[in-house]
Structure formats: structure tokens, C-alpha cells
Design a protein around this nucleic acid. Structure first.
Lengths: 371, 371
DNA sequence: AACTTGGTTGAATCAGCAA
DNA sequence: TTTGCTGATTCAACCAAGT
């Protein structure tokens, strides 16, 4: 599919998706060489040092006067912004319309990133706080201990829905309450920390637990995950383990070498393990009429709400009727309560042996047969 | 002092600081009418530009009372940015060179605010996360529960130090470990929430506990705290309680009325209570030698730990000596215990009338004399 | 008096699909 | 592009009333 799409793009490199590979090069160039709308999720951990000014040409009036400090600062923010807009723009092109992007940063850069995302018409879904359970202490006692980093999760645009959020899986992972926007996870240390000899292979290696939660929440098995600042490949390692395809982009030989070695040692989990709590929304639609049609509920049956306050009778076509109203299980359920909306499946019950059984029970039976 | 400064500024309104008052008007106009470099700390809770679309209902079909006030409506990000740059610029003028600013926001606006702060040459000290212990859930299961807000704490510029950070008070408040950049506090509800009849007086009232920590960490008693979006006056109420002076700026009659009533019911804490929480760092250093020098403790005196397990004798130069060791009160205290470190001021005691008195008592006496 | 139950509420960018 | 239907979806606190 990606190849077919790619072949139709004129004037661009005809490159099929380099799945589960690390592409060496500048991330903007490489992303521009990939087919558009081909990636499900992007995870990006961009550099946030502000020392980019050396690599960028200064304006002509480079006479540095008394306010040189401020000028330098401003110019470096400008340079950083330009870089940020360029890679975020390239990222947006390769993202599917239903895709989302994650960017991680600290207060040095995350405000610039967030502003750029919004200006490029990405639609912020959440800002997520990674609370480090074991942050580096502040040695000078002049500020609060910097104990968190910020991730921004954004969709391609406000009007393009359909993004993946595995709500039920997240809720299950969090002891059955909704996953919040703050995640408490340890930093990457110990055996997980990749070394070259006795010095760390990468200054800002992220913990796999962080990527685990990112990918579990916003991707499905088989999705394509792109990381434009691949580093030592945490994104790739976790994607492989979770049965997602990855594309890594990285400039430095040394990081690529370490990442390839690392990922080759990762095993993909088996399909059964990869199964996760599915959203109810993803299940097939079963009309109430088919429950009646199959004779699971006879026409003429009286339905009750859970407190037997309201009743309605089932008609042959799967609609309900009361003294006042007739229509779908949802419409009549809303109407009798005077509510704006109602889920008829959980609202209405049938009486069996004196007990009330929600009509959703029959839908579940039908769905079970369908598998 | 404020008057004197103000009188020397030519061409500006000669307005003395309206301490502990609420000034009605547009915050930019009012700030521009105040003398420059006159305020120690600014706390600002600007509109978030939430861009809410339709009404949201809970699973039980009740309606969420969202923020639909006119003051939160902006036509575009551009309009919001212009507003932000203008008020942050006016704020910077009234801030002392040693002053700091706090701004609170959510992902809707905080990236714009952070970018503006950096572009205006404020210097970010921390971003602080307010983790809500009881946030509103996400009712549709479409995102992570929005369980935090972000505060940015910034100095006037990178090269203007001397700002207040009460490191020790923060550490003491946090069970003697450094205060982190994430603060877990409940939202404002229950009896604290101000009401007009049975509806809330302000859509976005902040909890006093949040302002307590802000003011405790970054101001001293007697400091001037400005809040350009005063609302129902949480900043003023906490400032008054903590013995700080406040200046409130607010446009709406109704909010001002509620705030004035509220603040009039607040009592200032007594000096002793306020003093207890002062930073040790802000207090002048007193060498143990000067205690000996002054004759408050005679050379040759025996010091004890609080359980009389260890002893040491005072030498003329203010060092201690045991059988094994000699050195500072801290070094010898650590050594006798076999501990890596020790605060000699609280570890060592002198005997007076059979009772043990910590030597820190004498340091406090010296400090009291110095004020 | 202590405990249980039920109702209310909070800075919210809160659906997806087919006709 | 818009409309309309199906049907999925909540946590911690506080408070009032009942047991």
C-alpha cells in the first residue's frame, strides 16, 4: 500500500517504507523522502540544547554590541524555532490523517514545541507529565528539584478524528480507573542503561517503560511508529517487543550501531500476549431488531428500567412503544426519563424468573456467536 | 519608598503603590500606571483560551458547567498571543530586578505563555506541575484524564539574580527532602469555594493551598505581590494571611465585591508563626567561633548530644576535640556518630541547670541581635 | 453518635458513522 | 458538508439525609 502510494507521487524519491530499519541522515530530509500519510504515530525526543546558533548563518549585521547576550539568546530561540517548525512540518506530511504525534521535552524547549504544534494546526490532545520517581536532586538549592518532563500528544488536526486511544487498556493498566495525564515512572538507569565501556552510550536515553505506555495507549499491533530522533533506539526496541513496526531516523553512526545491536536482542511478544482490552466501540454493531428477529426477545414483551419506574413494549420491528412515544430503544429510553440521550442497551431490562436482565445480555450472546 | 521612587520618574502617573487594595481596570493599563521596579512577585492566572465547542454531559446525563465566560474568548491564537505579550511586557516593567513571576495555565495556553516569557527575556527557573488529587474525569473516554495544570516560574532575566527562593522552608514542608517540581494538591471545592447563592462565584477559583506554596517558596514577609487577574482574590487572601502585601487588579465589579468581603475576613498570622518558616539561607551565617568569641560558650565547655552518648570539648578557636578527632562542630558531630554528615548546631548541646540546651539557641540569639 | 446512601461537582479544546 | 442515529462514558470530595 505504501509502495503504491509512493509510486504515484511525482518528483519525490520512490522509497517504500523502511519498516523496522534505521535510516541514517537528517530527519527532515529523510521524512521528506517518505510517502505522505504513511505513518500511524510519531514519537520524537528532539534535542533541546540551544547551541544551534553555530550551525546557522547569522544575519548580516553581525556587529555585536552591548546587548549581545540578549541578541544571542533571541537568535538562538529563533534558530531553534526554525528547526522545530521544519521538522514538525515534515512530520505532519508523513502522518496519516488519523495519526498522532508525541514530543517530549523540558521547560527549555517544550513551550517552543507546543507553540509550533499549535501554529502548524496540530490539535493538542493532552500534555502528559512524566513524573520521575528518582530524579536527579538539585545540588545548589536555588530552585525546585526538576523532577518531571513534559510530553505533548497531538492529533494531525482538530477536524481529523479517528485517532487511536486504547482507553480500556489504559484503564486496565491503572487499576481500573482512568489513566491520568501524569505518569510516575523511574528514569532509565541500572541494567537498562546502555553503555560504551563505562560511559553512557547516550546522554538522554529514555526508559522503555515510558515508550511502553506511549505505544500501548496510542497504537495498535501492526501500526507504523516513526522516531525521527532515534538515538539508541528505545522506541524501536519497545515497538518490536509490542508487535508494532518502527522506522528510526538517526544521524550518528555510533548511536545507530548501539541501537541495531540492542533491537536485535529484543523478542516480539506472542500474539496472545499482545492482545489487550478492546474498546467497546470497536466491537461490531448489533441492532436491537436482530435480537427480536432471532426470537431472543418476543415481540410484545414488556421492558423495564432497573428500578421498574418506566415500562415499554417491544414491537415486531424492534422499536419500542409507550403511551407517549415510539421509537428506538435509545430514543424511548431518553424520552421516558426526559433525558437528552440514553443507552437503551443498558437502560432497558427484561424480566426472567422475577429478576431483571439488561437487554445488553442478548447483544453479548450475539457477539459471542459472531466470533 | 515607593512614593519616592515614583516621584523621580518623569512623565508617568505619580501613583503610590496601592498596597492591599484591588484596583479596578484593565491589567495592562493599571500596571503601566504603577511605578517601575516596585513589585517583588507577580502571580498571574490569565484566561486559558479554552475554545470549548458544545456542552459536555456526564454519563448520568447531567451537564458540565464549563468555562463560557466572555473573558475567556479570543478570536485566534494571534489575538491571544498579542494579549499575552502585552500584559507580560507591562508586568516586566513593574517587577523589581530581583523579582519573579508565576503564571499558571493548561495546554491550551501555557505553551504560548512560555514562549512569550522566553522571547521577552524572562528567564525560566522552573515549570511546576500542579497534580490535582481530585480532577474532573474524562467523561467520554477519549483522552487521558486532564489531571494537572502547569505553572511557570521565571526571573526577570538570566543575568538578574538575587531572587527569593526559600529552599529550607520548602524542604521542611516536604518532610526534609527537596521540594520537587510537581505538587500534589486538591482542587478548590467544598467550603473554600466561594458562591453567589448556589452557583460558583468564579469559574476558575484556585485553591489557597496552591498560593500558599507559591508565596511561601518565593516571597518574604513584607514583600509586595501583584496579581493582574485577581478574580475572587485567592492571592490577596493568602498574601494577607502570610504577612505579604498584595496589589490586585480586576475588571469585573462582581469579582471585586466578593474578593473584598473575602479578604476582610482573613487574619494575618503573628510574627512568630511567620518567622518560623523563614529560610535559613536568607539568614546571616553565624560561625560557631563567634559564639565562643562572644563568651556565650566558654572555651573548655563540654558539649553533649541529646542523649549524652557522645561528648566533646570546645577549644578557643571554636573547634571541638574528642579523644579521636578535632574539627568543626559539624565534622566532629559526624565523626563520633560514624555518620557522613551532621548539623552540629542541632546535634550538640550545653548543660545548663541540669538541662541540655542546643547550641543553636545561641546562634538564634546572635541573629536576633543582628536585626 | 457512627455509619451508609445518594446527589452534586470540578479550567473540558470529550464520538463515529451512515445517509 | 450537514444531519441524525447509535450508543459509550466518571473520580474524588463534599454534603445532606437517612439508618
Amino acid at each position: 500500500m505504501a509502495d503504491a502510494k509512493n509510486a504515484t507521487r511525482k518528483g519525490s524519491a520512490t522509497l517504500s517504507l523502511p519498516l523496522n530499519k534505521i535510516v541514517q541522515g537528517d530527519c527532515i530530509d529523510v521524512m521528506n523522502s517518505l510517502p505522505e500519510k504513511s505513518v500511524d504515530v510519531i514519537f520524537a525526543d528532539p534535542p533541546y540544547n540551544m547551541q544551534l546558533k553555530e550551525t546557522l548563518s547569522r544575519p548580516d549585521n553581525s556587529k555585536v554590541d552591548g546587548v549581545h547576550d540578549a541578541w544571542d539568546k533571541f537568535s538562538s530561540f529563533n534558530a531553534y524555532d526554525e528547526f522545530t517548525y521544519r521538522w514538525l512540518d515534515a512530520a505532519r506530511r508523513v502522518l496519516k490523517d488519523t495519526g498522532t504525534i508525541w514530543v517530549i521535552g523540558s521547560y527549555h524547549n517544550i513551550f517552543r514545541v507546543g507553540t509550533a504544534l499549535q501554529n502548524l494546526e496540530y490539535w493538542v490532545l493532552n500534555d502528559v507529565i512524566w513524573r520521575k520517581s528518582n530524579p536527579m536532586p538539585n545540588f545548589r538549592g536555588t530552585r525546585f528539584t526538576n523532577a518531571h518532563e513534559t510530553l505533548i500528544w497531538a492529533a494531525k488536526s482538530a477536524d481529523k478524528g479517528g485517532y487511536t486511544f486504547n482507553y480500556d487498556a489504559m484503564k486496565a493498566m491503572n487499576d481500573d480507573t482512568q489513566m491520568r495525564s501524569d505518569w510516575t515512572l523511574p528514569i532509565c538507569s541500572g541494567g537498562e542503561r546502555l553503555k560504551n565501556g563505562d560511559k553512557k552510550a547516550h546522554a538522554t536515553q529514555k526508559p522503555e517503560s515510558l515508550l511502553y505506555r506511549v505505544l500501548m495507549s496510542s497504537t495498535k499491533p501492526g501500526d507504523v511508529v516513526l522516531d525521527p530522533f532515534f538515538g539508541t533506539g528505545t522506541t524501536g526496541a519497545v515497538a518490536k517487543k509490542l508487535g508494532r513496526d518502527f522506522i528510526g531516523i538517526e544521524r550518528e553512526d555510533e548511536y545507530i550501531k548501539v541501537a541495531m545491536e540492542r533491537i536485535s536482542n529484543v523478542k516480539r511478544l506472542d500474539d496472545e500476549t499482545l492482545g489487550f482490552t478492546q474498546s467497546k466501540r470497536a466491537q461490531p454493531r448489533v441492532p436491537f431488531g436482530s435480537i427480536v428477529e432471532r426470537g431472543m426477545i418476543e415481540p410484545g414483551t414488556t421492558l423495564y428500567d432497573c428500578k421498574r419506574k418506566y415500562t415499554a413494549r417491544v414491537r415486531t420491528d424492534g422499536t419500542l412503544i409507550t403511551d407517549m412515544e415510539k421509537g428506538s430503544i435509545h430514543k424511548v429510553g431518553a424520552s421516558v426519563q426526559g433525558a437528552p440521550a440514553c443507552n437503551g442497551w443498558t437502560f432497558w431490562h427484561v424480566e426472567q424468573k422475577g429478576e431483571l436482565l439488561p437487554i445488553d445480555f442478548f447483544r453479548q450472546q450475539v457477539r459471542a456467536e459472531m466470533n
